Amino acid sequence: MTKKEKAKFIMEELDKVYPTTPVPLDHKDEFTLLIAVLLSAQCTDVRVNLITPHLFAKADNPYDMIKLSIEEIREIIKPCGLSPQKSKAIFNLSHILIDKHDGIVPDNYEDLEFLPGVGHKTASVVMSQAFGYPAFPVDTHIHRLLYRWGITNGKNVTQTEKDAKAIFPEEKWNKLHLQIIFYGRSHSPARSPKLSVDYITEAIGRKSVLKDYKP
């Protein structure tokens, strides 16, 4: 199969399994999404969704967030891991949002990535899921699967994002990146692949063998 054939097959199969793609992280606006995505680094979405209601009950906007101390934020988010760094980032980015953006989460990569604790992946998620801007955030599931499916060489997440954007239609990016994440969690987890059935990888492998077979 060529890359274009693989891409078409992947999109068709994922549309069958995941016709709708709800945002995995619970939030009510751009700020709460930004905080939830920041907390999700090296933490599951399930755990983040258990923790954020406690945090947002005290502060669901930057003005209330800076009324909390870094230590108070840290105590609440401790189960998410990396709490010392994340609590400082949340406190400091809230100050920046107030000082530079009137308390509003910016809708561009430059200003988002300037915020403490916000890298390109986090900014891409916010741009995609909060503002509907075409983006293709690459997490570990997407990085692993697109390499396994022969869409990218797996060199690094930057290359994977570049290759994904080159092969998949832009209008599909926002939905597709979520579909791949859902598929990876259900059918191709990194830690227990033997307990799941990655049928897309198997199908791509069979189709590639059949196409290249010359009796």
Results as ranks from 00 to 15, higher is better:
Glu30Gly: 10
Pro84Asn: 13
Ile73Val: 12
Glu30Cys: 13
Met127Ile: 10
Ile90Leu: 05
Ile35Gln: 03
Ser40Asp: 02
Asn153Thr: 15
Leu93Val: 04
Tyr18Leu: 10
Arg185Ser: 04
Thr44Cys: 06
Val23Gly: 08
Glu171Gly: 04
Leu145Met: 14
Ile142Trp: 07
Leu97Gly: 03
Arg47Tyr: 00
Phe136Gln: 11
Glu170Gly: 03
Lys6Phe: 02
Leu14Val: 08
Arg185Gly: 13
His54Phe: 09
Phe9Gly: 02
His177Tyr: 12
Gly81Leu: 05
Lys211Arg: 14
Leu55Lys: 00
Leu195Ser: 15
Leu176Val: 03
His143Arg: 12
Lys3Asp: 00
Glu161Gln: 15
Gly154Leu: 14
Ile204Ala: 08
Ile90His: 01
Ser208Asp: 07
Lys67Pro: 00
Phe9Val: 03
Thr160Ala: 15
Leu178Glu: 07
Arg148Val: 11
Ser196Glu: 07
Glu113Phe: 01
Val23Phe: 10
Lys78Arg: 14
Pro215Cys: 03
Gln129Met: 13
Lys207Arg: 15
Asn61Glu: 04
Glu161Cys: 11
Gly150Asp: 06
Lys3Glu: 03
Pro19Glu: 05
Gln85Gly: 03
Met65Ala: 05
Asn49Gly: 04
Glu75Gly: 07
Lys78Gln: 09
His54Gln: 08
Ile98Glu: 01
Ile98Pro: 01
Thr201Ile: 01
Cys43Lys: 07
Asp212His: 13
Ala166His: 11
Lys4Pro: 00
Trp173Arg: 10
Pro79Phe: 03
Lys165Asn: 03
Phe136Ser: 10
Pro84Cys: 03
Ala89Phe: 09
Tyr213Asn: 12
His141Gln: 11
Tyr63Pro: 00
Gly184Tyr: 05
Pro137Cys: 12
Phe56Gln: 01
His177Cys: 12
Trp173Glu: 06
Pro53Asp: 01
Asn108Leu: 10
His27Asn: 15
Lys214Asn: 11
Ile51Tyr: 00
Ser188His: 07
Gln42Ala: 11
Glu13Pro: 09
His177Thr: 03
Leu82Lys: 08
Tyr183Trp: 09
Ser83Trp: 07
Pro53Phe: 01
Asn153Glu: 15
Cys80Gly: 15
Asp111Ile: 06
Pro215Met: 09
Leu68Ser: 09
Pro79His: 00
Asn49Tyr: 01
Ala7Glu: 00
Lys78Ile: 02
Asp198Tyr: 11
Ile10Asp: 02
Val37Trp: 04
Phe91Met: 05
Asp198Met: 13
Gln129Trp: 13
Val157Leu: 14
Tyr147Ala: 15
Asp45Lys: 05
Leu34Val: 09
Val37Ala: 10
Asn92Gly: 00
Lys194Ala: 14
Asn61Phe: 03
Tyr133Phe: 13
Pro106Ile: 04
Ser83Gly: 02
Lys86Tyr: 02
Val209Asp: 06
Phe31Trp: 13
Pro24Gly: 11
Leu50Thr: 00
Pro19His: 11
Ala57Arg: 10
Leu82Pro: 01
Asn108Gln: 09
Ala203Phe: 02
His54Ser: 04
Leu93Phe: 07
Thr122Asp: 02
Glu5Tyr: 00
Ser94Phe: 02
Thr32Leu: 14
Thr201Asn: 14
Phe9Tyr: 12
